[in-house]
């Protein structure tokens, strides 16, 4: 029977997934050993990471080759679009767990600790305020991170990087390769500067503000939320760097460049997470 549906690319058997599985087994068991001081934890852990990186190079390299070889077509392109959207949705839900914890603590658990029997019997004199390291009386005092220094500047950096990335995308669409490469470089640079400030901020928090991971619930939510965001900026910057090298290698055409778009979607997602972070972690 004849029809117009184009053939869908189904890859040949691949050795890469099993490398990834062994890598995560080493990663997980290495982390467990390391955390519990049993056996050669760090060695196993970093071996896992090395294997994971090897797997990604091989696997993604093959995907790039297949894409450049013109094997994907419109249907695979649409699959990639759907899947990137759903992947970003899963990331949103991951952050939602940590934002949810922050809201729960600020709206419910701190007021509960400061009223009724909790206050009368367990934690006398504890008052509800934010930031808080909780009612434990021996907690060391810390200074919360202000919003209008580095964090505000970082907000500006990330927003600007969104603009430069869109400028690069316009360059790609109009086949101005120079604009594309410059825009990508600028975006990567802004991301790296952001990360640099973030690292500096952590040093500052630890050495000057006595704000640490164990500074009660404020330290917990502050470091986990900003830390996972920073991790995502790092991943996004690496993705952008890969896009830059692919651009230099002459990849992407105005009508076929989903890898670039997916990276852009991811970068904007990371950007939006930061805006929420800035408002509820640093500012309010």
């Amino acid at each position: 029977m004849s029809h117009t549906l184009e053939k869908y690319f189904v890859p040949e058997p691949s050795i890469y997934p099993i490398f990834g599985s062994v890598a995560l087994l080493l990663f997980g068991s290495g982390a467990v050993m390391w955390l519990n001081d049993v056996g050669p934890g760090p060695l196993v852990f970093f071996l896992g990471i090395a294997l994971l990186i090897y797997m990604m190079f091989g696997w993604f390299g093959q995907v790039v080759k297949e894409s450049q070889g013109g094997q994907y077509g419109k249907r695979v392109d649409l699959s990639f679009r759907w899947s990137m959207g759903w992947f970003i949705f899963s990331e949103v839900m991951f952050f939602a767990a940590f934002f949810g914890a922050l809201f729960y603590v600020r709206v419910l658990s701190l007021p509960w600790l400061a009223t009724g029997e909790n206050e009368a019997v367990l934690w006398q004199g504890f008052t509800q305020e934010w930031p808080s390291s909780g009612p434990y009386p021996y907690a060391e005092a810390f200074t919360p991170m202000g919003a209008w220094g580095i964090p505000a500047f970082n907000t500006l950096l990330l927003l600007t990087s969104g603009v430069t990335l869109t400028w690069a995308h316009h360059g790609l669409l109009k086949n101005r390769r120079d604009q594309l490469a410059k825009g990508l470089l600028a975006t990567i640079a802004l991301g790296v500067i952001f990360l640099g400030f973030q690292i500096y901020e952590y040093f500052h928090a630890y050495s000057d503000l006595n704000l640490r991971l164990d500074s009660g619930i404020y330290g917990s939510t502050f470091y986990l939320l900003t830390g996972f965001h920073g991790l995502h900026v790092t991943i996004g910057a690496i993705m952008l760097a890969v896009m830059y090298f692919r651009v230099r290698a002459g990849h992407f055409r105005p009508d076929n460049h989903f890898a670039f778009e997916a990276t852009a979607w991811y970068w904007h997602f990371v950007d939006v997470v930061w805006l929420f972070l800035f408002v509820v972690v640093y500012w309010l």
Partner: peptide, 11 residues
């Protein structure tokens, strides 16, 4: 961290 530790403000 103190996410689930009331002494640190968690729950």
């Amino acid at each position: 961290t103190s996410f689930f530790n009331a002494a640190g403000g968690g729950d």
